[in-house]
Design a protein around this nucleic acid. Structure first.
Lengths: 159, 159
DNA sequence: ACAGTTGAGTTCAAATTTGAACAAGCAGTT
DNA sequence: AACTGCTTGTTCAAATTTGAACTCAACTGT
């Protein structure tokens, strides 16, 4: 091979729209959450994920993968949130090397207070701006994109 | 007002797919660029933007807005890239307080060397994973999302 | 039981990002 | 010219993120 298969205009539009919307949406939500509740978007996602998890607890690594953050980054954030009383660390019962992050009652309360404003912002910024068809395309297409990237990190069909 | 209009499943799918794809894609591209060329995605975008700009130069503020980065963050990055010889700083002719960032020949050369691999990655990770219809939906829908957010920072119909 | 590997979390220093405070320049008024 | 208010870009300290090195625990095969 050799010659690059450049993006045509149609593809370029999709690319540019995606990348800039991604950055802007994230930034916007981060600000909304920080102003309203003093939470970063990352922290909100952590609370959210733990809250849904069974028993409100989850292994560090699994959490890191889910939230998409490096392991050390998660260690740091959980440390911060622990100081703030939103989560606790607890040893994993069946594995002495494992650590469970668990959401505290205060964490749940904070989440409940933050959720309405957050959801409203998500609607205003993204969801309600898309038509139902676009939403479906986003869910399907970007869902596939997500899965493909997640896969390649796994079985790593590295050729 | 009062009761929160929660996301239904269809909306939630779109939201989750969007946010995780956004994070993953960005991370993936960042790594590809860093491995191949020692550039961060941000730096690539800066080079790209300057390269397209007239005379290969642009005001700091405009560049920051375009790339979506805080002003101080841009100052830092341009500093790094200046050290690396990829860009230069030059005073704006008509405004003594203005500064122009300008891409150097070496910057252009770097960009040219980086582009093929980057485009290929963008295809593999995002573009080629989407159907043409999905690409159109992404371009239109997320384009609208981007514009709305950009607008609100402007005229700020803050009610 | 014992080396050899792999996996889970943490630690640490370095790189980056953020936001507030600042120094200057520009424009409009008086 | 002096005064006021905005815009530019930088500086600085604090917060966060990253990646590599490290510590233990768990698993493998002998």
């Amino acid at each position: 091979m050799g010659h690059t298969n450049w993006l045509n205009e149609e593809e370029m539009n999709a690319w540019i729209a995606f990348i800039s919307a991604a950055t802007l949406v994230d930034r916007e939500l981060d600000q909304q959450l920080k102003e309203d509740m003093g939470l970063s978007h990352l922290q909100y996602q952590i609370l959210m994920t733990l809250n849904r998890a069974e028993a409100g607890a989850m292994r560090m690594t699994e959490l890191a993968e889910r939230i998409i953050n490096s392991k050390s980054g998660l260690t740091y954030q959980i440390g911060q949130m622990e100081k703030a009383g939103l989560v606790t660390r607890r040893q994993c019962e069946w594995s002495k090397s494992g650590v469970l992050a668990e959401i505290t009652p205060e964490g749940r309360a904070t989440l409940e207070r933050a959720a309405p404003g957050h959801v409203e912002a998500v609607r205003e910024i993204l969801i309600d701006v898309l038509t139902p068809e676009e939403r479906k395309a986003v869910a399907d297409g970007l869902g596939r994109v997500r899965d493909r990237i997640a896969e390649r990190k796994q079985g790593g069909t590295c050729w």
